[in-house]
Design a binder for these strands. Structure first.
Lengths: 203, 203
DNA sequence: CGATTTATTTACTGCTAGGTACAGAAAGGA
DNA sequence: TCCTTTCTGTACCTAGCAGTAAATAAATCG
């Protein structure tokens, strides 16, 4: 049951990776089909045949980003021995990734479709959903810390998750503004120094 | 020395305010000249005669935003009796403004031109400069706190300014994602709870 | 009054956007 | 071998973009 018809002449996965990079650096609306075909090394009909349309290609690029770039942070969050260690590792992984010299700075999910035309509202809403899901995952990890005894019971985990997510999102802006990896880590230091006072139960 | 020629038939200041609002909600590249003329209630040649071109109009809108929306935060920063009170008031003013129901959520300087095409790099760089200037102003306020005795000498004010600026920038993303005023204030609470441990001199 | 200056309206320009029709090329199946 | 299927390249389509030319309207100046 081999494939029928003329075989594709380009590497779909590689083309998708390249599309992801352009979307990541210029944003959804800032990237044209021409930009994409150029960097992907293919013609428009090949792009449409393989990926559907610009929006579908973007969503697939976001899925790839999640799988590749989001992986380290998720694993850090999951595998940290305590909630605090998990949050620290997650923030530091991301701070490093956001300032890596071989990638566009900052997080693609935060930056690539934050404002735009009404007709692309669905794309922005999708990324917003993605961000909210990340915040929820962080909250669940903090709840797990309570269950496992390394976070004081009664800690307002939703509040903490919102705070650390806000810092994480702010890091993307800082990265775009030219902050170095060390600068981002120093910001993470600050956020983590707050941990003890934040997890202490309210008086 | 009255004005010569046919008088302008629209209120330039009002038109600029309306342009600002559209840019604020859709971003620089997400706003077309047609969007602008529609909401400003004028025709294209009137727009070009009065404001030059899209980029000049945007920069003027940013200047207006700074003057109108940035004013409360700047004053709070300046007039707070201590550095801590000043930072708290600035963050709370902004958290409230970012979630005001009669305005687009979040900060125009942070959101309206964060990614885009290479040809609009100058616009993005201008806003980045604006953000860096804000961070610098915060750092100077912290230095003033040292000079006035309400911040421990030896405090790393640049580090603190980077941290609080990051939180402030993150609030804009949270606001766009639908966080309420209370939610933003709770994030500010967390950031401020960290104050004492952050200003303490390193061991 | 007429001359000058500036704003407005309509219509247009050149360009780029996202997306597609069509003809030919390269594979498998019968 | 011929047919079917799928991909590729060229050329094209419609729509929207930023920006402007030209004619006209409304004001001041002399």
């Amino acid at each position: 049951m081999a494939e029928r018809g003329r075989p594709r002449a380009f590497d779909r996965a590689q083309a998708l990776r390249r599309a992801m990079t352009v979307f990541w650096s210029r944003g959804y609306e800032g990237t044209s089909i021409g930009d994409l075909t150029e960097v992907m090394g293919i013609n428009k009909p090949s792009l449409y045949a393989a990926f559907g349309c610009k929006e579908e290609l973007f969503l697939e690029a976001i899925a790839l980003y999640d799988a590749v770039e989001g992986n380290a942070g998720e694993r850090a969050l999951r595998d940290g021995p305590t909630a605090r260690a998990a949050v620290e590792a997650m923030l530091r992984e991301n701070a490093q990734a956001y300032s890596a010299s071989d990638k566009p700075p900052g997080c693609m999910v935060v930056l690539s479709a934050i404002l735009g035309t009404p007709e692309n509202r669905a794309v922005r809403e999708r990324l917003a959903e993605n961000r909210r899901a990340g915040q929820e995952a962080l909250r669940r990890r903090l709840d797990r810390g309570i269950a496992e005894g390394d976070v004081p019971p009664g800690t307002d985990t939703a509040r903490l998750a919102a705070f650390y997510t806000t810092v994480l999102e702010g890091l993307s802006i800082q990265a775009r503004d030219g902050a170095s990896g060390e600068a981002l880590q120093a910001i993470v230091d600050c956020a983590l120094q707050a941990w003890d006072v934040l997890v202490a139960p309210a008086p």
